[in-house]
């Protein structure tokens, strides 16, 4: 049983579980640092999952599928930003609207386009490839650890590093933080805060788009109604736990990935009498615990500082 929990294959499951959360949380972070709370990732990812598998099945190209997913996702993110900025709508309500729309629209299209009420499993999907370095194949431990993971995972790692550098060292990153912390100050030196807002939403849309495509054409080759199952919201908690910084988010999503992997592994144990739904509950419970821990830490920090 020990081996079941700690084998190399479990490790790759962990990375696979961590990838979409990491991407989504990074996206959420950009909007958050710029001063706007974005909870529309659930909807962006769902739209992207649907779009990318559809385009993928049609063209048999994972690249086109991925790009289609990102495009749709960015479109809705821009719509979100537009309503918030131009018409002063509340970001939570618009996010809620997009999430609801995504669910309703994808279910509707599932029926209208593919005649299915539950899932869409095309034969002609070209899955997002995994990365295998040939020279590593002969190295015993590294082969298992580093080979065979999805391209998206490595992309996510690169993006995490890129995000880190952006906020620490680039003018763009400085501008985002300035708009988030003191928008008036940013405006007074000529920073276009609307452009910053829109750009962070575009980034969030792009990252969520990648995550969504990963859901339907990377980890699996299927679209199921409401398949994101709350991951968009979980990524908000992950972002909080990671303190709104890229490296912190990396660790927080690792933590989430571990909990999800654990629950999956427990389900496959022999003699499992606990209903599977209880096990599926674990990531959500863990998210609530994460939020409580984060709140306690924040309280202690504020007390210590005074």
């Amino acid at each position: 049983m020990f081996r079941q929990f700690f084998s190399i294959s479990v490790f790759s499951v962990l990375l696979r579980q961590m990838t979409p959360v990491l991407l989504s949380a990074l996206g959420c972070m950009f909007c958050y640092r710029a001063g706007t709370f974005n909870m529309g990732m659930e909807g962006y990812m769902l739209f992207s999952a649907f779009a990318s598998i559809s385009v993928n099945a049609l063209t048999q190209s994972w690249v086109l599928g991925l790009l289609a997913g990102m495009a749709i996702s960015i479109l809705f993110a821009l719509l979100h930003a537009f309503f918030v900025h131009k018409y002063k709508a509340h970001t939570i309500i618009v996010g809620f609207a997009i999430n609801t729309l995504a669910s309703a629209l994808t279910i509707f299209l599932l029926q209208a386009l593919y005649g299915s009420s539950g899932s869409y499993i095309p034969d002609t999907v070209d899955p997002i490839p995994t990365l295998t370095l040939p020279f590593l194949k002969s190295v015993p431990v590294l082969d298992g650890l580093l080979n065979g993971h999805s391209v998206v995972f490595w992309l996510a790692i690169l993006l995490t590093i890129a995000a880190h550098i952006t906020f620490k060292k680039t003018p763009y990153g400085m501008h985002i933080i300035a708009v988030g912390e003191n928008c008036q100050a940013a405006r007074s030196v000529g920073i276009n805060d609307a452009a910053i807002l829109y750009s962070t939403f575009v980034i969030c849309g792009a990252l969520s788009g990648i995550a969504g495509a990963f859901f339907s054409t990377g980890a699996t080759k299927i679209f199921v109604r409401d398949m994101i199952a709350g991951l968009g919201f979980i990524s908000i908690a992950v972002m909080n736990l990671g303190n709104g910084k890229p490296i912190g988010i990396l660790f927080a999503s690792l933590l989430y990935g571990a909990s999800k992997t654990l629950s999956l592994q427990v389900q496959t144990l022999p003699n499992m009498t606990v209903p599977s739904q209880f096990i599926e509950m674990i990531p959500y419970v863990l998210t609530v615990i994460m939020l409580i821990v984060y709140a306690l830490v924040e309280m202690r920090r504020k007390k210590a500082a005074s």
Partner: peptide, 15 residues
């Protein structure tokens, strides 16, 4: 604890 009620309530739905 001043936790964000949006995410907590959403999680509680799934739970």
């Amino acid at each position: 604890l001043n936790t964000n009620e949006v995410v907590v309530t959403l999680m509680l739905n799934y739970i």
